[in-house]
């Protein structure tokens, strides 16, 4: 038994997420990861944007900042840059991070600022009623794609790697221990650390795509996620329709706030 109660704001429970929504599973994995790392709650800040995922801060007993749609990363950048001693965790969704906040997403990754970013990817705009997002798979239905989505989806993790993030992983809520491990690694990493977490949205996504039962979506994650080691052994045909999970990038790069500290020392030394 893990005692979550010391980390959560019980007054706000039961939470607002729908039955079978995976967001609560991610929150629990995050709490366990934080607990294992000796992070002070007083010095931890959680920043989010708008959407289902972004309601996470209301439930965590740390400093929490629920901002505007797409802007979690700039707010978090301000917090971290002004006060680098704070541990800053960003919680965002596929629409929040890669549509309205897409510009901040690539630039925060490029800057490699020491933020831990959990991107809850449920393939849909849940809170606004199931509109398609930049990660909705081609052919899937959404309230704004009633005849099926004709657009190709973003590779969100790949985008962060290309932009310069030092740590990028993909996890899912079925394989929940792996998810916790990825989050812990991201928290430990100095630099922009992204964990994209595949999470079911039975209400807005599943209902329109023959997976209204949360169990169906969990089974989909079980049957279609492939760990990186195994992925390497698959043929292109075998990879079709599957999603690679695990650590996708882990490199050492200059971190923004550390570089700025050096700049201050250089200027003050002159």
């Amino acid at each position: 038994m893990f005692n979550y109660l010391k980390f959560i704001r019980t007054r706000n429970f039961p939470h607002i997420w729908c039955p079978g929504c995976g967001d609560g599973i991610i929150l629990k994995a995050l709490i366990r990861a934080i607990d294992g790392l000796d992070i002070s709650r007083d010095e931890a800040v959680m920043v989010s944007g708008i959407g289902c995922s972004s309601r996470t801060p209301g439930y965590v007993d740390i400093n929490t900042l629920h901002t505007t749609h797409g802007r979690a990363l700039p707010f978090a950048t301000g917090v971290k840059h002004a006060s680098p001693d704070l541990n800053v965790i960003v919680v965002t969704g596929d629409g929040d991070a890669t549509a309205i906040g897409g510009n901040h997403y690539i630039h925060a990754a490029r800057r490699n600022i020491n933020l831990t970013v959990l991107l809850y990817n449920n393939y849909i705009y849940g809170m606004t009623g199931g509109q398609c997002s930049p990660t909705t798979p081609r052919g899937d239905r959404a309230s704004t794609a009633p005849y099926g989505n004709i657009e190709p989806p973003f590779n969100t993790a790949g985008l962060a790697i290309s932009a310069g993030a030092s740590f990028v992983a993909r996890a899912d809520v079925y394989n929940v221990k792996r998810c916790e491990k990825m989050i812990r690694q991201a928290l430990e990493k100095d630099g922009f650390s992204l964990v994209e977490i595949l999470t079911p949205c039975p209400t807005a996504y599943g209902r329109r795509n023959r997976m209204a039962n949360p169990v169906k979506l969990m089974e989909w994650l079980r049957d279609n996620t492939v760990p990186v080691q195994k992925w390497e052994k698959l043929s292109p045909e075998e990879r079709e329709g599957k999603v690679r999970v695990g650590v996708l990038a882990d490199t050492e790069k200059p971190e923004f706030t550390a570089e700025y500290r050096k700049l201050i020392e250089r200027v003050q030394g002159e």
Partner: peptide, 21 residues
């Protein structure tokens, strides 16, 4: 601390985030 943000929206957001600390 100075930062040139990627856009005006980001600059406003970062300003608010910094102030909260």
């Amino acid at each position: 601390k100075f930062i040139q943000m990627e856009d005006e929206l980001g600059a406003m957001g970062a300003t608010i985030g910094a102030s909260l600390t």
